[in-house]
């Protein structure tokens, strides 16, 4: 579903080739890609997750951490299941092999969404957000350009804690504090991130900017 829009680029591939067959598993086959882009509903995944799907994933994932992810602009929702930990980072994946790496609830990388966030320098920002402290932080996001060069975007973020709320979602019930980070840069578009932080400093829900192509995503921890 996430990739449905991206597949619209696929017909360009026809410039180079039309249809092909053979016994090599690596042969590029633009024809089938085009076909998929025409199929209504893209990957066949629903735009919005049902309660049943969420319950099934939570049950099927054993005791692994599960986070809800919505890409606002693409109106796509999916459940991320923790597949690996490299402390303090945890990598989550969707059933369609897209990955999101998260540190204490802050997204630090994505893979397979298109226009992926390759890496960030998050220490300063995360420290303010976790401690729910007002302050200024330098924050760097790195993206690939279409020619595979890395483009770092350096931001200055003003972090400000806001009101306290009670969170009750999925298997999480906790008091929490809202924290807002407004970030500007000479080279990248400005954005405002919103975090809901529990007393231990974990971000349990958020709205985060992942760059021009993905835009804002919302996250929601369902099971830690």
């Amino acid at each position: 579903m996430i990739r449905r829009t991206l597949r619209r680029l696929a017909p360009l591939g026809l410039l180079a080739a039309l249809a092909a067959c053979g016994n090599s598993p690596y042969q590029a086959d633009p024809f089938s890609t085009l076909y998929e882009s025409l199929r209504p509903g893209g990957d066949g995944a629903p735009g919005a997750l049902t309660q049943e799907a969420i319950a099934q994933t939570l049950a099927g994932a054993g005791d692994r951490a599960v986070t809800f992810l919505e890409i606002d602009e693409r109106e796509s929702q999916s459940l991320l299941v923790n597949i690996e930990s490299n402390p303090p980072y945890r990598t989550y994946a969707t059933p369609t092999r897209q990955a999101v790496t998260i540190r204490d609830g802050m997204i630090v990388a994505t893979r397979g969404l298109g226009g992926d966030l390759m890496s960030v320098d998050e220490d300063e920002l995360l420290s303010l957000v976790r401690s729910r402290t007002k302050g200024e932080a330098v924050y760097i996001q790195r993206f690939l350009r279409s020619d595979d060069r890395t483009v770092p975007l350096t931001y200055r973020c003003s972090v400000e804690p806001d009101k306290s709320i009670d969170v009750s979602m999925g298997l999480i019930q906790t008091p929490a504090r809202e924290v807002v980070a407004a970030c500007t840069s000479d080279v990248g578009p400005p954005f405002v991130d919103y975090y809901v932080v529990d007393p231990s400093g974990q971000i349990v829900a958020s709205r985060q900017w992942l760059g021009r192509i993905t835009g804002y995503v919302s996250t929601h921890v369902l099971r830690r």
Binding site: A93, A99, R111, G112, G114, G115, D116, F143, S146
Partner: peptide, 13 residues
């Protein structure tokens, strides 16, 4: 060529 096409591609992780 620097900006044409999806930056970083859309292949799986």
């Amino acid at each position: 060529p620097k900006t044409l096409g999806m930056p970083g591609g859309v292949e799986d992780a």
